[in-house]
């Protein structure tokens, strides 16, 4: 350990100085041959499964393509069709409703949970328990709740019975299906989101709270006047991540309602999937994916702008 440090300490400075002063012509390529070797596998993966499909997706969105016969170029026809496609607008509406309920509930409960954990306990067990649902698959979570919320035998409906309330067809009622799916995924994500916020809470200096306590501020007031404002940059990032993730809901819908009843839960991911793999309308599905891409980029941009993510209120203090 010691010998290493002694040997190494002066070396880098001498190296850097000589490089900075007169770059020898042969050094201009630097470590290029070695670097190519190191980057090559990842570069192939990137080119083949990110870059090329992105370009190809754009091209396919301008074609009629059923996978079996070669694509036929049709210009902007697919994009024009979107305007009059009431199923697409329905999918967008349904997805937006899902995102609002999911993100709204998830954010409120997660903030509550994070603040409670921060104020009450550092217990790893508590944090572990609340994170547990996040570690099992969406499909697992969907099936468990599908069972618990079953109209006939589900334990939740039996509890409602016992309380003297009417049974509820959670997944079968077109007005309730989206809120139900939103709450199921909220259940899966609150622990994860709370831990993200918890990490943000730990960055707020203790001195701020001590000052508030000295001034006699109540817990309630401290939360609204100090915790929440100082948490803003973290909350903004968490919201960008969770909103974009929420728009991509698919698994839960696919294994529970399959888009029904009628089109009540035909969210945008499921609609695109259905178009491509059940109706073999790949060109149109690709066009919808492009629209979704632009939409998500726009939402992320707006969120970042509105929330001034990069700035922290701590700097001034």
């Amino acid at each position: 350990m010691t010998s290493e440090t002694v040997h190494a300490a002066p070396r880098p400075t001498r190296e850097d100085a000589s490089r900075g002063a007169h770059p020898p012509p042969l050094r201009r390529l630097g470590d290029l041959p070695v670097a190519v070797m190191f980057v090559l596998p990842a570069a192939v993966g990137f080119a083949a499964f990110y870059l090329w499909p992105a370009l190809r997706g754009l091209y396919l969105s301008l074609t009629k393509y059923n996978v079996l016969t070669p694509p036929r170029f049709v210009g902007l026809e697919n994009y024009e069709r979107i305007l009059g496609d009431h199923l697409f607008w329905n999918a967008l509406k349904v997805t937006a409703e899902y995102v609002m309920i999911n993100i709204g509930a998830q954010t409120v409960i997660s903030v509550l949970l994070a603040v409670l954990m921060h104020r009450l306990t550092r217990s790893l067990v508590v944090r572990g328990v609340v994170l547990l649902p996040f570690l099992v698959a969406n499909v697992v979570v969907a099936l468990v709740w599908f069972w618990m919320l079953d109209y006939q035998l589900g334990v939740v409906n039996h509890a409602l019975d016992w309380l003297g309330l009417d049974r509820v067809a959670f997944f079968g009622d077109s007005a309730l299906a989206i809120p139900t799916i939103a709450m199921v995924n909220t259940w899966r994500h609150i622990g994860y989101t709370a831990l993200l916020i918890f990490a943000g809470l730990q960055m707020i200096p203790r001195s701020v709270y001590e000052a508030a306590a000295l001034d006699g501020a109540s817990e309630w007031r401290t939360f609204w006047r100090i915790t929440l404002p100082l948490l803003r940059p973290v909350m903004a990032l968490v919201l960008v991540l969770t909103v974009i993730g929420s728009f991509q809901v698919f698994d839960t819908v696919a294994v529970t309602t399959g888009g029904g009843p009628i089109n009540a839960t035909r969210v945008i991911y499921f609609y695109i999937y259905d178009l491509a793999f059940n109706r073999f309308n790949f060109g149109y599905a690709a066009a919808l994916s492009s629209v979704l891409f632009v939409l998500l980029a726009g939402i992320a941009y707006l969120q970042l702008r509105l929330s001034r993510t990069g700035e922290s209120d701590l700097k001034g203090a």
Binding site: Y50, F293, A300
Partner: peptide
């Protein structure tokens, strides 16, 4: 090595693309 930062930035742009955009063409491939 020359072009290092440019290649890295290109890799990073892929973080912003929603998976479904590349999933359909990847399926075809």
């Amino acid at each position: 090595w020359p072009g290092r930062d440019a290649v890295f930035m290109l890799f990073l742009t892929a973080l912003m693309v929603p998976p479904i955009f590349t999933t359909l063409p990847n399926f075809v491939m």
